[in-house]
Write a protein that binds this DNA or RNA. Structure first.
Lengths: 194, 194
DNA sequence: ATACTGACTAAAATACGGATTTAGTCAATA
DNA sequence: TATTGACTAAATCCGTATTTTAGTCAGTAT
């Protein structure tokens, strides 16, 4: 029975509950009962509920990270890569319900304990975008004076639309618009033929 | 005393209070006392608190509308007009505190009574952007296949960044990024020289 | 030492009743 | 038509009692 890692069982169960009911409506007892253990064992593996949630969130974002890394690593035209990156990012995050819950962290004082994981993800994204833009610049497809500032803009746009998209469930409705928005941004970076 | 329009006195006073304390922290009595009238008189001119707030919000947005109309009516290059439109829009809305309060309308069930005014403003903006793009298309500066769809994108972007900008007071911090974002969007619409 | 239990505690969330505030009404008045 | 101010009903506030739940820990088993 304990040949299977209990810690990962806990995370698995926690993922189910947090995803379905959210952080507040999930109790540590729910999770413990679900894996037929006493509640105390959760505190053997995790400092507390917040740390456990962070772990779940981290794993959720990790699958997104992996997919995005793959896109960035591809040897396609960097303009295509950028568009794919944006579309995939939004598509995958659209199903990341625990991430959705933490969106409130930015706008209220809520979910402050999730700051580290969110910042880590943001840093990751900045890095990937920088890689894409640098590659594009080197190859001559992309023309930007200041890469860092361009990254800021893209981050601002993709972060900005998250709330209407995810918290108001408008993703499907706006899918087309998102696609065209991505194209638009990519176009504005395309090296002009003079 | 009543040669001056009492209705506008009420709105003036209401504007002060709503702007300073917000909708919930302002009482009808506050407003009435401030103009040395009995509370009942407010209900002679307005159906209730919500209608009064709507009137205040309407006027607040109206000054923005007027400024934006002026920009759209100018005979500058339509690409410049578009950029000016976006920057002015954000700059003016940044100080529209009652509008800020209604931003929550979108993301919670709160402030539903403000729906009409918000929708009216959105319609106004779509109209202005359409005018700019059509003019640009006619003059050959702007190259878009579908104007309506481009309007959607621009609306999505400018609406999207409102929350971080206004509710988190990041306007000053992001002023540069906003400027570059506007340039970027404008650039993506610029007719390519082939 | 490692993994786990389950009773225990303290803190947070919830429920509730009573007091207070406040939105909205209306008959009277000028 | 414009305004008053007392009145009502609804919402908010507030303290408190109750319940739920996060987190602890001494003890058990392996």
């Amino acid at each position: 029975m304990s040949e299977i890692n209990v810690k990962s069982l806990i995370v698995e169960s926690a993922t189910k509950y947090f995803s379905k009911f959210g952080f507040h409506k999930t109790t540590m007892d729910d999770i413990a009962k679900h894996i037929h253990k006493a509640k105390g064992v959760l505190y053997y593996y995790f400092k507390g509920k917040e740390e456990l949630f962070n772990e779940v969130l981290k794993q959720e974002l990790n699958t997104v990270k992996i997919a995005l890394k793959e896109i960035v690593a591809s040897d396609k035209d960097s303009l295509i890569t950028l568009k794919e990156y944006m579309l995939t990012r939004l598509k995958l995050l659209n199903t990341a319900v625990n991430y959705h819950e933490t969106l409130e962290a930015d706008f209220f004082g809520k979910y402050l304990f999730v700051k580290d994981v969110r910042e880590d993800f943001e840093e990751f994204e900045r890095k990937q975008l920088t890689i894409i833009l640098e590659k594009g610049k080197k190859e001559g497809f992309i023309d930007v004076k200041n890469i860092n500032s361009t990254v800021n803009i893209i981050m601002m746009v993709v972060n900005g639309i998250e709330i209407p998209l995810f918290l108001q469930n408008k993703y499907k409705e706006y899918e087309n618009t998102i696609d065209e928005l991505s194209s638009m941004i990519v176009n504005s970076l395309r090296t002009q033929k003079k």
